[in-house]
Design a protein around this nucleic acid. Structure first.
Length: 489
RNA sequence: GGCCCCUUCGUCUAUCGGCUAGGACAUCUGGUUCUCAUCCAGGUAAGAGGAGUUCGACUCUCCUAGGGGCUGCCA
């Protein structure tokens, strides 16, 4: 029994489509589940588009999602000589012939055609779609070498699969028709025909293949928008497969253990950004507390620097995870490394009164705990923590209009400054007690909303009293005063 | 046009002839609450249509309709 070998064979274009990466995910899972090999073949024959940069983007996306491959990367361009040798073989055996043709754009030249059998039925058992059959007469001869002498996809693909000893070809649905042709090439060459599994497409609301016109269609975009690779991976996996019970959020180990190609669905699946967003929130909640805290610290540091910060930490600290197993190893390494230099010793720019490292870390932990449950996307973090790390935070105009530009608010804020300045024990419960007393059980809204906007610039965010505690007495009083004087009507 | 494939709530899906058709997302209602979230409780919502096989069909067969793919010197 020979080992299972599958491959992911994208042509690098500079962007990796989600449908394409889902094929990679299924291949990877199939290999890991069966203990086989997952190979990467770069079909870089389009010299115009297959630049080193485009290839780097491909590797990047795969690394980001933890799709590690076995053996060396196979570059299709390096195998052109072999492709042509095989074509000669086919020519000699009568399975191919040369003919003068005129292409669509009017160029005339001699191309090499593969000669299809003229009778019989070509059939195969697709692992996901079941038995497939097609009459040979329904398929026309097709070109395998261009008039400029370069091999065409069909022959290159088959020869590479033979050379890489691929046993299972798991690829997109759009290749089913090609499969009938490719099987004929394998046979003409006397090679063993691999097993096939064709994956349905990811479609938009109209049922058409999901494209960039329908939203974010490329892996890089999800990365930039602050999605966690685990969430994208998990969501894409669920789009056409499920473990057979009600579990949806799965660990990488569970996926590897439970994945079965036979259970992958035949029908096209509609991409639902809302469910992906939900899943991302689930994964964000699952980030270990210290890790999330360090994410905030890093984000704050990036905000401080002049460079565009988002891209920097959108590459989340977990981005270099390769497999679930390595993940935990990476995590400890990351937190050990990060607690020193990179995180600026957890400085809290607004709270110079926090002297010890322990105090500062506790401050960040408290903030992180409040932020974490409210975060759906990593990219929302900078705005959420801005008012805690800088005095230069933006004021939301609508919130200011609604909460501060009302008669009486100025007096209300100044009165609060009075009262808060008497508070010795600057903690959330103590502060809440002050406002509770003012409201006399009639709801704290009239006080809470103006305070929130005054100290944070926004109408939403973490609990108000927790917010004040984090800001500290000095900052809170200063901001309330400033808002009363400059922003109120 | 020809060939191939598909069809359960709005969406992703469970069901391998017994179904009061289950779950998740979304949505709605209520609770918690200082906002936004989280969390908790509950609701609305599905088997494309038609024949057949069967005691019984969402599950099997056929037809129709609808959808998708392919039909290149693209991959």
């Amino acid at each position: 029994m020979s080992e299972i070998r599958v491959r992911f064979a994208p042509s690098p274009t500079g962007k990796v489509h989600i449908g394409n990466i889902r094929a990679a995910i299924y291949n990877w899972l199939f290999a890991r589940h069966t203990g086989g090999k997952f190979l990467l073949r770069v079909e870089d024959t389009d010299l115009e588009r297959s630049t080193p940069e485009a290839i780097a983007v491909l590797f990047d996306c795969m690394k980001w999602l933890g799709l590690d491959w076995d053996e060396e990367v196979f570059y299709q361009t390096k195998n052109v000589k072999r492709h042509l040798e095989v074509v000669d073989q086919l020519l000699a055996s009568g399975h191919a012939y040369k003919v003068e043709k005129t292409s669509r754009d009017g160029k005339t030249g001699v191309v090499t055609m593969f000669r299809m059998p003229k009778e019989g039925v070509i059939e195969f058992d697709d692992i996901v779609k079941g038995h497939m059959a097609k009459k040979a007469e329904d398929i026309q001869d097709f070109a395998i070498v261009r008039s400029d002498g370069s091999p065409i996809f069909h022959i290159a693909n088959v020869v590479d699969d033979i050379d890489q000893r691929v046993t299972h070809i798991i690829r997109g649905d759009d290749h089913v028709e090609n499969t009938f042709k490719h099987i004929c090439i394998f046979r003409a060459l006397g090679a063993e025909v691999p097993k096939y599994g064709h994956l349905s497409m990811i479609v938009n609301q109209q049922g058409k293949p999901y494209s960039k016109r329908d939203g974010a269609a490329f892996v890089g975009e999800y990365r930039e928008q602050g999605y966690l690779p685990e969430a994208l991976f998990n969501y894409l996996l669920l789009l056409g497969w499920n473990p057979g019970d009600d579990r949806e959020v799965l660990t990488r180990e569970e996926m590897v253990k439970l994945f079965e190609l036979e259970k992958v669905h035949v029908t096209a699946a509609m991409f639902d950004p809302k469910k992906l967003a939900w899943m991302n929130g689930e994964y964000i909640k699952k980030i270990p507390a210290e890790e999330f805290r360090d994410l905030l610290v890093r984000s704050a540091a990036a905000e401080g620097s002049s460079s565009g910060s988002l891209g920097e930490y959108a590459v989340s600290p977990r981005s270099d995870l390769r497999s679930a197993a390595e993940h935990s190893a990476d995590k400890t390494a990351a937190s050990e490394g990060s607690s020193s230099g990179a995180l600026g010793e957890y400085a809290v720019s607004l709270r110079s009164d926090l002297r010890s490292a322990a105090e500062r870390i506790a401050w960040w932990d408290y903030l992180a705990a409040q932020i974490q449950v409210r975060t759906k996307f990593l990219k929302d973090i900078p705005a959420a923590i801005k008012c805690f790390v800088s005095d230069d935070f933006p004021f939301d105009e609508k919130a200011v209009e609604k909460r501060l530009k009302k008669p009486g608010v100025k007096e209300l804020l100044l009165d609060l400054v009075e009262r808060f300045s008497k508070v010795e024990d600057w903690t959330a419960p103590a502060l809440e007690a002050v406002v509770k007393e003012l409201s006399q059980g009639n709801g704290m809204g009239p006080w809470v909303h103006p305070i929130r906007v005054a100290v944070s610039g926004r109408g939403e965010g973490i609990g108000l009293f927790e917010m004040l505690q984090l800001l500290g007495k000095e900052k809170t009083l200063a901001r309330l005063r400033k808002a009363a004087e400059t922003l109120c009507a």
